[in-house]
């Protein structure tokens, strides 16, 4: 309402360092960046599989044995775990389970999901590799 003269409002730009303002923002940005490693790892893995498909299993294994690739895989593993953990935590925050009068805490979901992840991974390894 009112068309009378208006003095300018102060408009503030979001600083490019905004994500350093507090711990939560930083963790969020790190989580977002980890997805880059997940994507790179996927590309790498697809390339490896293509080697196997067009060549031999040995090409694939040689590719994987490259120290740079091993190093990268380790880094990607750490970031993937970080990414997974933050999502599990968020899952717990978004869909808490009500037990009696209290609700489950996000960290409980995190722990439960990690336990489930380990069990499923071992099951998969057992089914595919060991059996």
């Amino acid at each position: 309402m009112g068309d009378a003269k208006r003095y300018p409002e102060l408009r503030r730009r979001l600083s490019y360092r905004w994500w350093t303002a507090n711990r939560h923002y930083t963790m969020y940005m790190v989580r977002e960046w980890t997805s880059l490693f997940v994507a790179l790892y996927s590309l790498m893995f697809i390339y490896g599989l293509s080697l196997w498909a067009t060549g031999s299993r040995a090409d694939f294994l040689n590719f994987l044995k490259n120290p740079a690739i091993i190093g990268f895989s380790l880094i990607a593993f750490v970031f993937t775990m970080y990414h997974a953990a933050t999502w599990f935590y968020l899952l717990g925050a978004v869909v808490p389970v009500k037990i009696g009068r209290s609700r489950t805490k996000p960290w409980q979901a995190l722990v439960l999901n990690i336990i489930l992840l380990i069990i499923i991974s071992f099951l998969a390894i057992w089914l595919v590799v060991l059996r």
Binding site: M1, G2, A4, K5, R6, Y7
Partner: peptide, 9 residues
């Protein structure tokens, strides 16, 4: 008074 502008209307 429109507080935003400080004008009497």
């Amino acid at each position: 008074i429109e507080m935003r502008t400080g004008e009497l209307v």
